[in-house]
Amino acid sequence: MSKVFVRFKRTQPATAAILHAQKMATQLSVITASRKAPRLLKLRPEDLIRHQTVTKAWSLFQAEERAEQEAQLRNQYQSTLDAVELLQKISPRLYKSVTTPDNNITVFPRGGLRTPTEYPPTIVWRYQIKPN
């Protein structure tokens, strides 16, 4: 009876299976809390009160900001309304030109307004405009 040796036939499939299992275990461990969760946060009564005060102060602060913004919007609307009404009294021609819808003007500029970032770009402002 003769034996035929085939290289790595015995070991390779087993190693691949282990590696695969290890990979799965690692990936599962990343998305589960076991052994990774910190201890529960137990606040003392005074710390709890401090936390509640901070949270309340923040919500008050935001409510004030919101109220201020809403008031500003109301004032802006009223200001526009007053201006247009005054225009109607003074110059009906301009009033008509102003109140006729014209979609061209409200088109957002191409490549236009830049979103503010935390730090400025290297070229802060482009002083030369492209000729049209």
């Binding site: 526009t80 007053d82 247009v84 225009l87 500029p109 002083y127 030369q128 405009i129």
Partner: peptide, 15 residues
């Protein structure tokens, strides 16, 4: 002439 502006609306916002 070297200025690029965008007029938001033709409606006046205040008088």
């Amino acid at each position: 002439k070297n200025i690029n502006t965008w007029t938001v609306s033709k409606t006046p916002v205040a008088a």
